[in-house]
Nucleic acid binder design. Structure first.
Lengths: 360, 360
DNA sequence: ATGACGGCGCAAAACGTTTTACAGACTCGC
DNA sequence: GCGAGTCTGTAAAACGTTTTGCGCCGTCAT
């Protein structure tokens, strides 16, 4: 869906012809450096890549020449010889979604730290586009790919691997014998959230969930059950919202019959809506009902009473993904595939009380 | 600032040694295709790049061979010969910021459509890191760069250009003789917002702004002035918030003496906070006071009464940036630099009334 | 027949590196 | 002095393309 756009004014600057004045000089090649330093190309290459193989004196001469000529290496050409590029693919459904954006950020940081460049691939929930990016990455001889896969079509993924490109799965970790994966532990997240409520005296817990078909929702509920089971006298109910939005959160607050004393919403939108709905009914938060959200989205801290929530280390997810990828690439034989699951952590704010000895 | 993270469990799958079973076969080269089709390499290359130079019969034979061998072209090697790669750099302060994420999305889409790959560079507000990415892009022989520049250090930018890499500036358009730029028209945005209020009968307008040192803020205020000036009997006041956050928006609502009948907040956070603050004082929105925000952030639709706001065509910004870049690259001599300014558009929601004949 | 011309296809050079195998120059121990 | 061993440095091949210039072979007009 293209946004209609009106470019109000568009000014033309420069003349085009003389706007490309001195056609920029051809960048210096390694050969030029060699000539300038009075050594052979191979020596220059050695200085650059295995400095220990060359005497201090020549090394310095070479480095001077490099500086003088403003030489910059051409990793493309190098890759041609060595057989691998230095770029990593990052394939995700939508950069605009803050969850994926945080993954991208972590991944970009890690790639930068290790001297790799990150190719952003926006699959936009379209499998054929995901596939298009895969072939593009194969062409580029990408050294590896981090992917938040779309459908559960492992075929496409393994075809990439057959091409010799290691893959790390992020977030939607399907069990995967042939590669690493990273994800966050939603069961633990649910447990943490409800444990937090229990610790603050809540005993009649309501889970406001999304559709149980969504893995994250099911997992978080399971975690909630675990927490409640371990505390005698505690009780757990669940209600499912059709969509995990603010509007549906509010709607559920309206329809609530017997009020619980603790609510765990499996995402912050639901929680924000619920809080608003409850507030309109005159219910005080956290005095009458304590509320915990999930995700630590921006909205959690904006809402009327700042929301206690569960934070997922998403940037770390992205970072870990590329680091595991690089390990697979660099260690090769010694590498063992790993399934890394990150634990979320509670973010206490005003929608829950401070912990007391008991409560009831 | 690294988030503390606890990987709860980490399972080891596979054995590492035999986890890399059949070392994937070396991908087919153009030479293999040539052999299989019984033609020369150059013919294969011609089939691939200038099909008109080769007879239909041979072309088909070659294409069959390509399919049979599952040949994929190696643009890196090609680039070595032709002198240019097919990757574009996108340098921005923070992908996590939804504004920049939207730019990234638009840019990624455009790059994909034109067969270029987009290298994500996360400068993270650190000039030295921005510089680091610049040199990385020079190394890669990136064909061009779209950048949301950090400081106003045109030196770094022009140094990139001297290297022969065209640059398009996004968002923070400084007037730029040597390249294209894209941005949104904040003056128009301010005018639109206030015009919207005036059209709905508001006459005593308050602008809740950020620091006037920020260009966007100054521009939006200027637009507001233009709108008010063109309507007799209308009056404009301004108040500046120290930060453009929900909290400060609420604070301003508290401190407000004489109530205006229309408020233009120069960003949606301020607007959300202001609405909450006003609501707590018992002020009805939009009956007593109409409110317009800016940016069409997620929060605008979540808030108590959904917020009328101004939407910026940010994805289009990103898309246009790479397209202008590609024009510069492909048209070369005929290209003329352009400064493209996009117009924002109003998004009417519940925090303003429906337009009436007048209103007073 | 002959010459010119067009259409196809090919050989080879070039792009900028890395790496292998080797050569020359020292040093050292005898 | 001499051979073995160490250091430095080098020539050349290789990576996978694209492109230039050329040659071959029909065809067509003369």
């Amino acid at each position: 869906m293209k946004t209609a756009v009106v470019p109000v004014r568009t000014a033309v600057i420069g003349e085009g012809v003389d706007a490309v004045p001195a056609r920029p000089v051809r960048p210096a090649r390694i050969q030029d450096v060699a000539a300038a330093a009075g050594v052979s190309v191979s020596t220059v290459s050695n200085v650059l890549n295995r400095p220990e193989r060359v005497s201090a004196r020549t090394a310095e001469r070479v480095r001077d020449a490099v500086a003088a000529l403003d030489y910059v290496r051409h990793p493309g050409a190098a890759g041609l010889r060595t057989g691998h590029s230095s770029s990593i693919g990052l394939v995700l459904p939508d950069v605009t979604n803050s969850f994926y954006a945080r993954i991208a950020r972590g991944a970009a940081d890690a790639a930068y730290d290790h001297g790799y460049s990150l190719v952003l691939c926006h699959s936009g929930d379209a499998p054929e586009r995901e596939q298009g990016y895969f072939t593009m990455l194969v062409e580029q001889r990408a050294v590896g790919v981090v992917v938040v896969p779309l459908g559960a079509d492992p075929g496409r993924l393994s075809r990439l691997r057959e091409r010799g490109i290691p893959l790390v799965l992020a977030d939607r970790a399907m069990p995967d014998r042939d590669g690493c994966s990273v994800s966050v532990d939603d069961v633990a997240g649910g447990r943490i959230a409800v444990q937090h409520l229990l610790d603050r005296g809540a005993r009649d817990i309501l889970v406001v969930n999304g559709e149980s078909g969504i893995r994250q929702c099911a997992d978080r509920y399971q975690g909630a059950r675990q927490a409640v089971r371990s505390r005698r006298g505690a009780r757990l109910r669940q209600v499912a919202a059709e969509e995990m939005t603010v509007a549906y959160g509010a709607k559920i607050a309206d329809q609530l019959g017997e009020l619980p004393d603790g609510v765990f919403c499996t995402n912050d939108f639901l929680a924000a809506g619920l809080c608003r709905g409850l507030a309109e009914r005159g219910v005080r938060i956290p005095e009458d009902v304590q509320v915990v959200g999930y995700g630590d989205l921006d909205i959690a801290s904006f809402v009327g009473t700042p929301l206690t929530t569960v934070r997922q280390p998403v940037e770390e997810l992205g970072r870990a993904a590329v680091e595991m990828l690089l390990d697979e690439i660099e260690a090769r034989a010694e590498h063992v595939h790993e399934t890394r699951v990150f634990a979320p952590e509670p973010v206490p704010r005003d929608s829950t009380r401070t912990p007391g000895p008991t409560g009831t």
